[in-house]
Each structure stands twice: as structure tokens, then as C-alpha cells.
Write a protein that binds this DNA or RNA. Structure first.
Lengths: 234, 234
DNA sequence: TTAATAGTGTCTATGAGACAGTATGCC
DNA sequence: GGCATACTGTCTCATAGACACTATTAA
């Protein structure tokens, strides 16, 4: 039997949420080399007997204090180019989490700073701004989220348990960076069986007619999908 | 700085093609423990300075003699449950390849046998039939291929450089396990700009009017997609 | 001629996008 | 009242699915 080359395995997290009307990702500023003082996705080394997702959650808590409860979580991909890291060979498994507004992060462990950063601005210069190949991971994660809004019920993961159709529309508009017709959107989401359940009651917010409260229905897929318009328009 | 736990990293390949009118996957029968004599996806350990995709191609050639030229290739996901393997901790990165009819495989290296196996029958008892967690990997790979037929030009990867609309329809019918209306399918694929380019000339094959020869166009995405009918019907 | 496959045309139902109009709140 | 937001209805256009029909071959 051959000797197996010894790899280090890391997990990295793309945690997305919407803050201040902007698609945001949780970043840390690295305390140690390599890439000390550079911004990076939270993550770290997997223990030898630790499941990958467990490791990802642990590192997230250690570095940012953010505890993902039962939020949506899925694997993005693995990144293992032979020259991707300055240390001995590393393969990194990236995960995507989508959550409603979480608490403020608090830096800990290997992180000097932990905070939410706006995605649109970050993507324009991510290669310069982020450590390792985290720019690519971020792009893949954001694109995954954007794509899943089309054909899955992922959008509900960005809002709390009770929300309105407008809240949901804001998710689509924010993540896609487009403007959607409120009337057609309303007809679409309320007409998709199992996507929304009326929660009863209304919610007043500033001017205008109060919106009916909604909660999540059993549907996990949208069929037919909500088509994404061609490109950003705002 | 902490010591990094030493992982072994493997690559596994789900190579799909259509043989004898059936969606087929390339499997090997393992020569060595663990899971000696069991069927498995081709794959093996990644060298310490080797890119993941390079390793996957190398292992495929070593074990099956199949050399993927410029065929479609993408990562499926990584599989790293802490108890997934009997050996020291292993994380496996799985790749999907889709190719037109390749040569006959020839067993080599760690493989006692290498051959194409029909996917539908395999999926019904994959957990018993395949080593490690390769049943899950196979399912994920097949589902990825099925999904990508809808919105991408992946179907062309199952056929040679010159083909007919019927060939392409056979791909969809075989991979999805459904029957499609030949007339609507023809209208759909010929009406999607950039999907097909007439290659000139025709092809006679048994009875019936000869089909016009086609070759691949520049399009990589299908918009609107070709919708997959509800379920298998043959 | 018959059978088989390739390709075109036509009808209908569905749904997306545009947008008028109504309901109900705040100022 | 004026304005903003929520919600409903209506129109049009595009397209998927069903299927009639024509075209071209082999047997």
C-alpha cells in the first residue's frame, strides 16, 4: 500500500445576509501569517475526526462569534490548486450559509476583526482585497445564492420567520441587484402553492397600506422558477 | 501555530456516457482492501503537489485506460464524513465527466476489472453495490448531469462532433428516462440560437427521411431551458 | 405501397411582463 | 387631500405541449 501524502484540510464559510439594504458577507481580518492583516472568509483547519460541516460551524463561532442555528447551509465546492496556499498543501471545502440578520460579530481566535461587508463593492476588487483564493470562493458562493433564488425557496432564508411579500421582494432585488415589478412579484409568489402561508394579521411600516404577514410554506422548489432579469439596473 | 491534522485527499470520477441506448458509468472492481472485490468509481490518492483535476485524470487512465480528451469536466462536490472510510481520515473530491462513446476500458493498477455499467439498474441498489460512499457520489453526479441538460448545452457532450437532432433527443430521453415529442423537441433545439449549427449534408440510417447533420454552436446556456418532464415513463 | 423517421405548421393553455385600477394606511 | 404602499385585475406576447401534415428514405 502506498503512503498517502499528508494534506491539510480547511473549511471556509461564505455567510450571506442582508444588512442595511445590501447583500453582505461576513469577513474577518486575519491576525496571523500567511496573509496577516488581510481580509478573508472565516474558516480554518478541520480536526482529524471532525465532520466538515461541524468544523465549519466551529471555526465560524471561534472567529466571529456568529452561531448559525438552523439556517440554510450547503457546500459550494472545494478549492485545491497545488499552489493556492503558502503553507504545506491545503485543500479547502467551502460552504454557503444564508441567514436573516444575525447578531453583530465579535472577533476572536485568529481574527483581529470580524464584520459584515457589502458584497457588491467587494466583488469589484475582491482579488486584491481577500486572502488566498477567497475572491473566487466568494464569487462562486454569491452566484450560487443568486441562482438558487430562481428555482428554490432560498429567499425565505434571508428573512425572519414572519415576513411580508415586500420583504421577500427586497431580498430578490438586493441579491440580484435589479428592480422587480411589485405587482407581478406579488402575483407570482402568492400564486406558487406552498411557497408562502398567510400568518394572519398585518404589519404597518411607515406610509402605505399594511402588508399581510406571511410565513414559510412547505415548498422547497419553485416550479416554474422566478426568472432573473438580464442584469443589474440599480 | 497549530499542527495541521494530516488528511489523505482522493479524487473520484463519475464518467458518464451513453452505451447501447443506456446511460452508463465507468466502474472498476477494486483489487485491494478496503472494499476489495467491490465495485467503485475510478479514483485514488492525490499527490502532494498535484492539482486535483490532474490527479483525477491520471487515476482514470491508470485504472481504466480511459483518457478524457477535451470532454466536459466539472467538480461535483467533496465528501468527507469523519467515518466515511476505514483508513485514516480521507476527504474525497468528486468530478463529473460527460463524454461521447469512449473506447473500451482496460483494467490496470488497483483495478481488477474496469467496465461500463448501466446507471438505472445500478441506482436501484447502489448502496449495496458500491464501495465507500460512492453510491451517494454517483447519485449526485447523475442528478447534476440531469439538471444541467435543462439549462445548459451539456447534452452535446454526450455525442460526437457531428450529430443529428435525433441523436440529441436520444440523449435527453436516455439520461432523463422519459419520452419526448420529436416534433416539439426539434422545434425547440433548432429554434434556440447558437445551440446547433447545420453541418451540411445528411445522414441516412435505416428507414426514414435522412436527418440533417448538425454540429455544436457557440451557445453554452439554454434560455429558456428545456423543461424536464415530471418523471420517468419508460 | 407501407412503414419509419425528419421536419413544418397550427392550435391551445399557461405564464411573464406591462400597467390600470382599487384598498388602506401615514402625513 | 396627497402620497405611499399593498393588492387585484386585464391585456399582450412568448412558449410549451398536443398533434395534423408534408418530405424523404428503406423494404
Amino acid at each position: 500500500m502506498p503512503q498517502h501524502p499528508a494534506f491539510a484540510v480547511t473549511v471556509d464559510f461564505v455567510v450571506l445576509t442582508i444588512r442595511a439594504g445590501q447583500l453582505s458577507v461576513l469577513l474577518i481580518r486575519r491576525r496571523h501569517e500567511p496573509f496577516a492583516e488581510r481580509w478573508a472568509l472565516p474558516g480554518g483547519f478541520v480536526e482529524i475526526d471532525e465532520d466538515l460541516v461541524v468544523a465549519a460551524r466551529r471555526e465560524l463561532v471561534e472567529e466571529t462569534g456568529v452561531d448559525l442555528g438552523r439556517v440554510h447551509l450547503e457546500q459550494i465546492a472545494s478549492y485545491g490548486a497545488a499552489d493556492r496556499d503558502r503553507r504545506p498543501r491545503v485543500v479547502s471545502v467551502a460552504y454557503l450559509a444564508v441567514a436573516p440578520k444575525l447578531g453583530e460579530p465579535s472577533a476572536g481566535d485568529d481574527a483581529a476583526v470580524a464584520e459584515w461587508r457589502g458584497v457588491p463593492k467587494l466583488l469589484t476588487h475582491a482579488d486584491d482585497a481577500l486572502a488566498f483564493d477567497h475572491a473566487m470562493i466568494l464569487r462562486d458562493g454569491v452566484e450560487r445564492a443568486r441562482a438558487k433564488l430562481e428555482y428554490s425557496a432560498l429567499a425565505r432564508s434571508f428573512v425572519g420567520p414572519v415576513f411580508t411579500v415586500s420583504d421577500l421582494r427586497a431580498v430578490y432585488e438586493t441579491v440580484w441587484g435589479v428592480h422587480l415589478d411589485p405587482r407581478n412579484f406579488h402575483r407570482k409568489v402568492t400564486g406558487t402553492p406552498g411557497f408562502l402561508e398567510p400568518a394572519g394579521g398585518e404589519r404597518r411600516e411607515g406610509a402605505g397600506r399594511p402588508a399581510e404577514r406571511q410565513t414559510v410554506g412547505p415548498a422547497t422548489d419553485l416550479n416554474p422558477p422566478i426568472m432573473r432579469p438580464d442584469g443589474p439596473d440599480d
